[in-house]
Design a protein around this nucleic acid. Structure first.
Lengths: 205, 205
DNA sequence: GTCTATATATTGATAGAC
DNA sequence: GTCTATCAATATATAGAC
């Protein structure tokens, strides 16, 4: 893959940052949204910030620890986005549940980070408490939204949460990977589809 | 990432193949199932086959053309698997539709290739006719299965196909990425969940 | 805290011997 | 058709100068 023109390393034009850790996390989101988790590299983050490739390692011991910080931020911001969407969807629990699915799709596509990053395989081994807590709170939020949609056995409630996650993540992933590109769907279209399918699954019958 | 112990390159133990192109495709599926599309490399395929890294390029001009051959095989075999599953599910169109979702999940997880590979962004630019045909036939099969489930406007039928794809691909992807690992779900559990959700969305209400 | 420079690994891909 | 050898990129990560 050719380097972005904005990532060219030009010695002599480097500069210092007031808050490099925050800048690293912010730029990581940009690259995740553009190229996905698989293509994420510390070196590319550094290039885009016009700093040396060594600089990030002063603040994060390795690639995984930077990604863990990104994942923690993502989990918190995603939970906020879902809370805001649910609050704006009114009083009907099914409306709120469906709004959560749309919010997930928009967040995952625009920021490049969803459950794949928050629960990424390599990050669980770090036993990062902040990440574990943020992930847990995100799950608890989704479970609460599912429970509100109707009386169900606990197992069915959990499966409803699972359905929302899979639908929203599936739409976001396939959209990012270009599967829907030839259909000329916009991000709003995709979010609406995930939302509608979640609504149908959540509606008692 | 450390190389697999089975991928160690040991000069002196190399051998020739009767049908290297077929072996390359077969081994590519193995690596896709283990590490996913993002980690796929021609070099690793060669290492596992105990051949030089140059050998594959006698049969496929570059990485993309090898992947296109893999994707074409995947599309055909996936369509076969779905046809077989539908045929074994009986006469009820909803049963057949649900069986297709389960078949997709099993295929995508066990072979490492689903819509993400068949419709991978980089492969569309090759304008490979065999791949395009195989992908089209796969889609036509899913559309036919969706149409059989009930009278619907064309737009709703297409969205039902889309829902199946997203659900099945989402379950397969998140399972492969380890999201369901801590829940101790088996592949059969995951396939059943994708199937059940597809069934609910396909059931007229 | 950031830089330069470096060590090491892996990749995609090619040239030329056999 | 396969091998050896090699090149240019790119990656992670570290040592030591400033």
């Amino acid at each position: 893959m050719a380097a972005d023109t904005t990532d060219n390393q030009r010695p002599g034009r480097r500069y210092h940052h007031g808050d490099l850790p925050a800048a690293l996390i912010r730029t990581s989101f940009e690259l995740l949204a553009e190229h996905g988790l698989a293509a994420f590299s510390v070196a590319q983050v550094a290039r885009r910030l016009d700093i040396s490739t060594a600089a990030p390692y002063r603040h994060f011991s390795d690639r995984s620890h930077l990604l863990a910080a990104v994942a923690t931020t993502a989990a918190r911001e995603l939970a906020d986005a879902i809370r805001t969407a649910a609050a704006g969807a009114g009083a009907d629990p099914v409306d709120r549940f469906a709004a959560a699915a749309a919010a997930y799709v928009r967040f995952a596509v625009s920021r490049g980070a969803g459950f794949n990053v928050i629960y990424a395989a390599g990050l669980q081994e770090l036993h990062d408490q902040a990440l574990a807590d943020a992930g847990r709170q995100l799950m608890d939020l989704l479970i609460a939204l599912a429970e509100d949609t109707g009386e169900r056995p606990k197992r069915d409630r959990l499966r409803l949460v699972e359905n929302l996650i899979v639908l929203a993540h599936g739409y976001a992933t396939l959209y990012h990977d270009g599967f829907f590109a030839r259909g000329r769907y916009s991000l709003d279209d995709i979010a609406a589809r995930a939302s509608q399918a979640s609504r149908e699954l959540a509606t008692p019958r």
